[in-house]
Each structure stands twice: as C-alpha cells, then as structure tokens.
Write a protein that binds this DNA or RNA. Structure first.
Length: 558
RNA sequence: GCUCCCGUAGCUCAGUCUGGAUAGAGCAACAGACUUCUAAUAUUGUGCUUUGUAAAGGGAGAAAUCUGUGGGUCGCAGGUUCAAAUCCUGUCGGGGGCACCA
C-alpha cells in the first residue's frame, strides 16, 4: 500500500527512495493511514509548507486505492481503501503463516555468544536478562535471513573455580557432592567471605589455581571434573526451561594454552609488554587504559583467553560476524579486547559486535554471585509458578500435570517478557511484588490474548479455508488491521537496532488493540462472522510470531 | 579524578538512533461496563396459591478484559532550527567502569 502512495506522488520529482523514507505512519488514525510531510520540500522550494500541502493534495489523482487525500496544515494525509487494505493484510498473513514478518535482511553466518554462566556459581535472576536477550536476538537474526550459531562461553576454570575447590577441600570435604545449585552457590559465597576476612588464605587459593591450570594434581583434577559436571547439568536444565539452547559450548579451559601462546607472540612483536612481571597491553594512547592478560605468575586471565576465543570463533566455525551479548559493566573491557585484536592485525577484527545490557539490581544494590546478594533463579521461578497455580485454580479445575505445565509456561512468559520489554540500556530494579503481577504490560496478558483468540475460533469451529467477504471495515477492525500490517517493519527495526524490546512493545500494543476490537465487535453470530473470524485468526498468527521471536511459546488455554 | 549509561505522570516504563501534528501505556486512586441463568424481596393485574414487570445478592458467556476521570516545568540552564523529550554544550542527581575478578 505504501508503494501506491509513493506512486501517486511521483509527479513531485523527488527520488523514489527518498520519497518512501519521507512518508510516515501518523500516530493518530484520524490523520489517515499514511502522511507526507512537506517540510523538506518547503525548504527546497522556499515556500510555505501549508501551501505546498494544499497544492499537492489538489493534484493527486484519486483512484480506487484511496478513499481520500487531504491537506492538514503542512501534511498531506492519505486515507487508503479500507476494504482493500484489510483483505491484502489478511491474505498475506494467512499465506505466510509462521513466516509472516520474516525477511531477507541479512545472509551471514553469525555466532551469537550469550548467557556465559559460569560453573561453580549461582545462576541468579540477573542472568535471565542476558540469556533471554541472546536467545531472542538469535531468533530475530534467523528470522531475518541469517544462519545463527548459538554459543555459550562458560567459565569452567580460573580463580573462581580455585576458590570454590579451596573452600570445599578446607571446610566441606566430608560432605558428598550434591546436584543442587543452591548448595554449589553457597560454597562459593562462603569462600569469598572467608577470603575477605583472612587475606593470607589467598596464597592457598593461588596454589590451587596453578595446580588446576597445570593439570598435574590428580585428586584436584577429579574434583574439578565432577563439580564442573554437576554445575553444567543444572545449567542445562535451566536453559531448557527458559526455552533456549546452544549449538556450541565453548570453555575457558579450552583456550587457556592458546591464549598464552598468542600473548608470547605479542610480546615479541612489541604489541604487548611485561610490566611488574605481568603481561599487559598499553592502550592509553586510545583512551582505553591498560589491560592485563597474564598474571605475574604466568597464569592466564580472562583477557588472554578472550583473544584466543575470538580467533577460534572465526577460524573453526567460519563465521562472518561475531556478536557478544554481555553485561555493560564490561564495556571498557570489550573495547580493549577489540582494540587489541585490531592492533595485532587479526583478519576479522572489524566483525565483532558488542551488545551490552544493563544490570538487574536489587532494591538494596547490585546482584552478585560473589557476595550471595542475589535471588536464585530456581527460587524465584518456584514463586512465580506457585502464584500462577493459584491464579489458575481460581478459574478452572485441572489435572495436576496440566496445571503445572500451564503454570510453568505462564511463569516463564512472565519472567522473560519482563526482561525483554525494557530497553537493554536501562537498569532493572528487581521488585518481586511487581514481578508477580499478571495484568497490564506483562507476558501473561499476551498469552491470555492469544488463548482468547483461539477460544473464539474454537467455539465457532473455524476453518481456515473458508472464504470471506468484507462488506465494510469499522474503526476497531481497521485499527487492528493497520497494526498487523506493521509487523514486518517492526521486525526489521528490531533486527537493525539489536533490540527485541521493539517486538515486545509491539506485541503488547497488538494485544491491546485486539482486546479493544473484540470488546466492541461481537464475532460469533455477527453479520460479518467469516471476515471477523479471519481477522481473529490473523491476530493469533501475528502475536504468536511476535512471541516466538521473544522466545516465549504460546499456550492454547490459560 | 577520567569515562560510559540512565533521568519523561505518585510508581514502572514506551517514544530519543532517523527532530515534525494535541508527549503515550501499565500500575496505584476514583467512577463505570453488555448478554444470559438463578432469585431474597417489591409491585401490576386476576381473584387465591398463579401471571407480567422491577430487583439486592450469586453463577455463566470471549472479564488475567474493556471504558472514563484526575494526574506532566520530558532533571535543570543555555544553544542550533521554521520546528527540540529527540541534536549540541554546560550543569545537577543516580548507576557502571578505570592493573593481575569474570
């Protein structure tokens, strides 16, 4: 339809592409479906924009595609033929189905690294944000034509592991290893606390770290392997629950050696230097400070491993683009890493993209697995599920398995949506009471609107193949249709700007419009039943697609 | 100290990239919402255990919803522009980062 508007303005002697960009969708429907602002022309022609608008409106030839074209102030507003627009949109949605909204905006092989949950530490509510964001971005990238490799880079080695093993050996040796995240998290927190109190213990930890890195102590190796597995298994369960999964698991332990090699090479090339016995790269010239790669005892730090990892990603997986979804507290760090890659003339140094997201904080402060100041994912999930169970029981009687499945779906939708709807740059202050709300702009509201649409279709024994005729399109129907039409554009924006929040907010708006529609327009038994059913069907398809992009599966009944 | 991010209704946020029509949602507050079933009770007519109407309360339908009202110096001060929540500069407030954590 937009193209028809462009065509009707072709007499203006403005480039087609430019014209297309200038045409906008008015905020308010009373201004029509498309609007052409005349400010640009006004500047070019040095004429009053209001007069230009009037002039243009008078010159446009009306055909059956438009109901009317009028000048309002400096705008030329186009009102398209509602019936034509509506049948176009409905037919397109029904033809493209699950693919509606997708596009060929890219064709790269992209590795998206996200979640990065470490072993031997708590998986807390804060981790959900990055995990949900990464999964959603992966889906958006795929939807837009790319091939995506989901990668999880997990810290299964390093100082935090040494601390955990130290604490276990020193204070908990008699306890059996438990497949229990809370227990694992607790020992880590205890280690941190003990080390803060007695700094002389750090030497013992350092020794364990060296031994782990050299892999020479058999009992330590064994303990590391076992506890690592416990952690990974419990993480796997969580990922499954959160509707995500990884094609590739990268581990810090796999890139340690290569990291040291690279650093040795960089010292020879004088890109890196030894300072105070540690291996560093000085980036002060670029306003990026100094980055330490190897400790003075020669063990490798995160930075050293990350350089090796970047190399591995491109060389082993032959990717075109590498995306890092990591908390924004590491912004400086990633700029340092990317700069170092550039200095060492790494072939693919320009193809790394950092997608930062802000923290999830508690009202009392930062959420941290180090201090234990956090809410464990598993605890929180249980609370939301319990709450969902109560809400369902208020309404229906269900078998207990069905009840739990639905409650879990609702809980996950609630949790993930609350993380995704917000701009990644903004801090989320986690308020449990608010997180337990299922009304308004929440995941359950979206699930509900989908379920309601299905229930209408079910009640009418709706069949997709049935033909429909549109006699007229009222205001509510049109508002819904024009929003349905915008979905592909929303997806494209979301893809370009790397923000699922656009899709999330669109989904909410769409659900609102749908509620508005069915409240005012009875579907079953109405004169235009076939058409309205078709519209309900289109809605259910589009909201399903939108929720899919967010990594939230729909359920047929609430 | 240097640097990055955030500041929009009482609270939580969208809109800022790409400047345009009266700055939008949700929550909280207040007021309200269709159809149908049941029906304490009231009432109309008949004239004696029955009819019509209205109706507190309860249930069901597509209500985890919808409608309305109130609520704004877009942190503040300058600047650019025909036009600024949006761009620039400064400033205040909050958060993050800045050498051996990840």
């Amino acid at each position: 339809m937009k193209k028809r508007v462009v065509k009707s303005l072709s007499f203006l002697k403005v480039d087609g592409k430019e014209l297309e960009n200038l045409i906008e969708t008015p905020k308010d429907q009373s201004f029509g479906d498309y609007a052409f602002p005349t400010f640009v022309l006004a500047k070019r022609l040095k004429k009053n924009p209001n007069e230009i608008a009037k002039d243009i409106a008078g010159k446009i030839k009306l055909d059956k595609n438009f109901e009317k074209v009028e000048a309002v102030g400096p705008y030329v507003n186009f009102f398209v033929n509602k019936i034509k627009l509506t049948s176009e949109v409905i037919n397109r949605v029904s033809k493209e189905g699950n693919k509606y909204g997708s596009g060929k905006h890219g064709k790269d092989k992209v590795m998206i690294e996200f979640s990065q949950a470490n072993t031997h530490k708590a998986f807390h509510v804060g981790h959900i944000r990055g995990t949900s964001l990464g999964e959603s971005l992966s889906r958006i990238f795929e939807f837009c034509g790319n091939k995506v490799i989901r990668a999880n880079y997990q810290g299964d080695t390093g100082m935090h592991v040494a601390k955990w093993i130290w604490c276990y050996n020193k204070y908990h040796k008699k306890e059996k290893l438990r497949k229990d995240e809370a227990w694992i998290a607790k020992i880590y927190v205890e280690a941190i606390k003990k080390l803060i109190k007695n700094s002389e213990f750090q030497e013992e930890v350092d020794e364990i770290n060296r031994k782990l890195e050299s892999k020479k102590d058999k009992s330590l190796n064994y303990l590391w392997k076992e506890t690592r597995k416990l952690s990974l298994d419990s993480l796997e369960r969580i990922y499954h629950e959160l509707n995500t999964g990884f094609d590739v698991h990268l581990f810090e332990s796999e890139v340690e050696e290569r990291g040291k090699e690279i650093m040795a090479g960089l010292v020879k090339k004088k890109i890196a230097e030894i300072s105070d016995n540690a291996t560093i790269v000085n980036l002060e010239k670029y306003g990026l400070g100094i980055l330490v790669f190897l400790r003075k005892d020669g063990t490798v730090l995160y930075a050293g491993k990350d350089i090796a990892l970047a190399e591995k990603k491109f060389n082993k997986f032959k990717i075109d683009k590498s995306i890092y979804v990591v908390g924004d507290d590491q912004k400086l760090y990633f700029n340092q890493i990317f700069k170092t890659l550039e200095l060492m003339k790494f072939k693919h140094s320009g193809k790394n993209i950092y997608v930062p997201f802000n923290l999830v904080r508690l009202p009392t402060g930062k959420m941290s697995s180090r201090t234990g100041e956090n809410i464990l994912y598993s605890d929180f999930k249980k609370e939301v599920v319990d709450y969902a169970v109560k809400e369902i029981e208020k309404r229906y009687k269900l078998e207990s398995i069905e009840l739990y499945d639905r409650s879990l779906a609702i809980a996950i939708a609630s949790i993930k949506y609350s993380m995704l709807k917000q701009d990644p740059d903004k801090v989320i202050i986690f308020d449990k009471k608010k997180a337990l709300r299922f009304e308004g702009n929440t995941g359950p509201y979206l699930l509900y609107s989908y379920a309601r649409a299905l229930s209408i279709l079910g009640k009418a024994s709706y069949k997709k193949q049935k033909k429909f005729k549109i006699k007229e399109v009222n205001e509510y129907e049109k508002r819904l249709v024009s929003l349905l039409a915008q979905f592909p554009e929303v997806v494209r924006h979301s893809y370009i700007n790397l923000t699922p929040s656009l899709v999330a907010n669109y989904a909410y708006q769409l659900a609102q419009r749908f509620s508005e529609f069915y409240h005012n327009c009875p579907v079953i038994g109405s004169e235009q039943e076939q058409f309205r059913l078709k519209l309900v069907d289109s809605f259910s398809q589009v909201i399903k697609n939108a929720l899919w992009l967010l990594g939230i599966p729909v359920i047929p009944e609430m």
